[in-house]
């Protein structure tokens, strides 16, 4: 059994590890205990700004700090970042100020808090903003590794983390993780599953099942949705000839949308998308939610077979 951890813990660890850079500041909107910025706050209260329950203000305080040479990391729940979307658009992305926004508790995997807390559109909306890098890592190791790279990025970013624990994939493999580069976690030749976040693990389970049925399967962790690793996608389109995307996010506009938008211009091979089918969630356990939303490994393997069957 692999180690279990929540990606939000990787974010909290990274902030603390970045504290040696005196330009790093942390902004909170009363959810530091949840997003895990609290570790930084405890160690460096002088560089932590409480914005109260005011996300719109927080984003622009970050913009002001970034314009003055600081590197602000702002976090709240993914769903609450959305109420500051226009601040992110007009005050951060447009002037290209490197504010790093983290939305934790993303996706239906958030679970029993219910549909109001389950952001299923965050990746889609932030992906539409010029200059903004969008990430959704799958484990605490990659979350920490990606967050540690943000001070050098020089442009704004949005990262979704998850509330609940998932199996850890990258212990000891930090050096493989680079913003904008998808990771081939398993190689095969019949179909490629491109997943992000909590569904990377489900994709791995699906691949095991497919292999046992004689289907050679590639699994990619596409932790960065923007800029999208199109080179890798084109390579997979050629080597596998069929693609399945998998995300705990609306089927509209997220990873599936991004991959489809690219492939339609280069190599429109059969493709299936696993995602939340244009509906809201409800209160249930994480695994129950993935089952209810048809995001589990068996849904992914079924989609893989469907995509393969569509090959000419």
């Amino acid at each position: 059994m692999s180690r279990m951890a929540a990606t939000r813990d990787g974010y909290g660890d990274a902030l603390l590890a970045l504290a040696g850079n005196p330009k790093v500041v942390v902004l909170e909107a009363d959810l530091g205990k949840s997003t895990k910025s609290l570790h930084f706050r405890k160690a460096h209260p002088e560089r932590t700004v409480s914005c109260g329950i005011g996300e719109q203000n927080m984003l622009l305080v970050g913009a002001g700090l970034a314009s003055s040479g600081y590197i602000p990391f702002a976090s709240t729940f993914a769903i609450f970042t959305e109420r500051a979307f226009e601040q992110m658009r007009n005050g951060v992305a447009r002037p290209n100020l490197a504010v790093h926004l983290c939305g934790s508790h993303g996706g239906t995997h958030t679970g029993t808090d219910g549909s109001s807390a389950q952001s299923i559109e965050d990746l889609a909306i932030y992906r539409t903003l010029p200059n903004v890098v969008v990430m959704h890592p799958c484990d605490d190791v990659s979350t920490k590794a990606l967050t540690m790279q943000l001070p050098e990025l020089g442009s704004p970013s949005y990262m979704r983390t998850a509330r609940n624990k998932t199996p850890v994939l990258y212990d000891g493999r930090e050096s493989e993780i680079k913003i904008g580069k998808g990771i081939v976690v398993k190689e095969g030749t019949d179909v490629a599953i491109i997943a992000c976040g909590v569904l990377v693990h489900e994709a791995m389970v699906a691949a095991e099942s497919l292999e046992s049925q004689g289907v050679s399967t590639t699994v990619v962790d596409m932790h960065t949705l923007k800029p999208l690793d199109t080179e890798l996608i084109d390579k997979l389109a050629k080597s596998c000839g069929a693609i399945v995307t998998a995300e705990d996010h609306s089927i509209i506009g997220g990873l599936g949308g991004a991959v489809a938008e690219h492939l339609i211009t280069t190599n429109p091979i059969p493709m299936e998308r696993i995602g939340v089918k244009d509906r809201f969630g409800e209160s249930a356990g994480s695994d129950e939610m993935l089952e209810m939303m048809e995001l589990k490994s068996q849904h992914i393997s079924d989609a893989a077979k469907k995509a393969i069957a569509r090959k000419v």
Binding site: V49, V61, Y70, Q87, N90
Partner: peptide
């Protein structure tokens, strides 16, 4: 000093600039 156009944003941005000055 600030790309405006959408009302209600400048005071928050100014707050960020003020905190930066203090830091």
């Amino acid at each position: 000093d600030f790309s405006a156009g959408s009302l209600g944003m400048g005071l928050s941005y100014g707050m960020g600039c003020a905190i930066a000055a203090k830091l």
